[in-house]
Deep mutational scan, measured.
Amino acid sequence: HNGKLCKLKGIAPLQLGKCNITGWLLGNPECDSLLPARSWSYIVETPNSENGACYPGDLIDYEELREQLSSVSSLERFEIFPKESSWPNHTFNGVTVSCSHRGKSSFYRNLLWLTKKGDSYPKLTNSYVNNKGKEVLVLWGVHHPSSSDEQQSLYSNGNAYVSVASSNYNRRFTPEIAARPKVRDQHGRMNYYWTLLEPGDTIIFEATGNLIAPWYAFALSRGFESGIITSNASMHECNTKCQTPQGAINSNLPFQNIHPVTIGECPKYVRSTKLRMVTGLRNIPSIQYRGLFGAIAGFIEGGWTGMIDGWYGYHHQNEQGSGYAADQKSTQNAINGITNKVNSVIEKMNTQFTAVGKEFNNLEKRMENLNKKVDDGFLDIWTYNAELLVLLENERTLDFHDLNVKNLYEKVKSQLKNNAKEIGNGCFEFYHKCDNECMESVRNGTYDYPKYSEESKLNREKIDGVKLESMGVYQILAIYSTVASSLVLLVSLGAISFWMCSNGSLQCRICI
């Protein structure tokens, strides 16, 4: 991952900044910058967002509201009850120091605090018919004063009620008058409520006091790749198909172990950190130390980045220098085999997901714990399936590479015959000098055995068991695999060879 928040398929997220979902939807004055928000790819909250409900109280069923919003990608904020005409018999300019803005008392931008007009609070009834052709999110509140005197001074009615009804919602609220500790300079409380109004449905408000009335509502448009994440990451000019709280993932790998919460087309989250597919040879310690064997393909974004291909070729060293050249036929066979294998694994496992966190309130801790156990169970199954699949494929890959290298080895052996000696570690020792032209003939299969047989015969008789390297004779190393990324691999195959001279070296080696 890149540690950044990015656009998702070209669409920017909605960053709530210092506000949370509650503050944004109710219209906390400190969240005025969010009022123009219309569309987004996903919503970003920060872990310690401080601006929620400015007048103390709870947004009821907040967790369910977050779940609903996680599939919303755009909205239209509109005046559901026009301020100047909807409440002619009531005062609608209630403000509070708890919702101060720029040093002055204020109130929510989407709600109206209705109080008595003169000395009376006549029963009010108002309704709205949803003609938007889509779901409408309606929010309101109920004020709970701290004393009967406060109730009387604001609403005149000691036994007030609030009723809200639609086809799918029907509740009646009565204020709970009680002494409470002071929070944000208030002994009173406000509880906030919401409902989704279906197209064509009607919502009716009736009250004799204590109503925090809707002013603006939201017509919602769903987008199934949307979601809500909690993150401290910063926004950058970048684009992605998959976003996590820790950063964007741009990967076609089937798995990731970065974060379980994802938005967009994302690899499946697994616990494993070692889900690797081999593309090189079986481990040979001396070669492995030099980083030549054991190439791997990573299938977990965050564990290993991208696929690494092994390729086969020849390396030689003689009086004229040293050089490398790919054996294109065996390399292409290996590439085709690995590509098919990788595609097979991805096809089997690479279903892209959006995974969002589930919200539970403080009273639902047991449910949250149960949900976590269920999620953990599914996660263990996914991890096991992934590891088992790759384990089985790896064994076949190792066998496949062994065969490829063996074929190259036999190709060289059949040409050199007794003009060189096998020394048991995949290397041959020449009994004759071999210049670049000679080396090329070994690589392309045109090695002239009779041409060098007499010199080889004489050297075999002279050496008589002495280690060949100390006599200045020449080696050919018969097994060799270097490691390159897919891009470098293609470039390498396009070149005939490249040279690395070893000044004054008397050794001649050709490596497979």
Rank of each mutant, 00 (worst) to 15 (best):
G264E: 10
A248G: 08
S486A: 15
M277T: 08
K433D: 02
L275K: 03
V473N: 11
E454M: 03
K467Q: 04
L275G: 04
A495F: 01
A334L: 06
G302V: 03
R366K: 12
N340I: 12
I263Q: 07
G426I: 14
T339C: 01
I300C: 04
R271D: 05
F360N: 09
S505H: 06
Q415R: 12
S485I: 06
V270A: 01
S234T: 12
M307Q: 00
K457Q: 08
E319Y: 10
L458D: 01
V442K: 04
K372A: 07
L416V: 14
A326N: 02
S485P: 05
K274Q: 13
I258S: 04
K462E: 00
D375L: 01
N459F: 10
M235N: 01
M235C: 08
G298D: 04
L389S: 00
I249L: 14
N257T: 02
V374H: 03
S492V: 02
I263M: 11
Q246K: 01
M367P: 03
Q332H: 05
F299R: 02
L416N: 07
Y431T: 09
N444G: 13
M439Y: 02
N371C: 12
A386Q: 02
E364M: 10
G465L: 11
K241F: 08
I296P: 00
F353M: 15
M307T: 04
A355C: 12
G494F: 01
K406V: 02
L389E: 15
M367Y: 05
C434T: 14
N283L: 04
E393Q: 13
T331L: 04
S286A: 13
L281P: 13
M307P: 05
I249W: 12
T305M: 00
A495V: 04
T354M: 01
L363K: 13
V491G: 11
K358P: 06
N343R: 12
K411L: 04
Y324V: 04
A325I: 13
Y384D: 09
S481T: 09
E368G: 12
P267F: 04
N436P: 12
Q288V: 04
G306Q: 12
C508F: 15
G298V: 03
H259M: 01
H401M: 11
P245W: 07
D435G: 09
L477W: 06
T273N: 07
S502P: 00
L292E: 05
H432M: 04
Y314V: 02
T240Q: 00
L487D: 00
E364K: 13
A495W: 14
D376A: 10
L363F: 14
L275D: 07
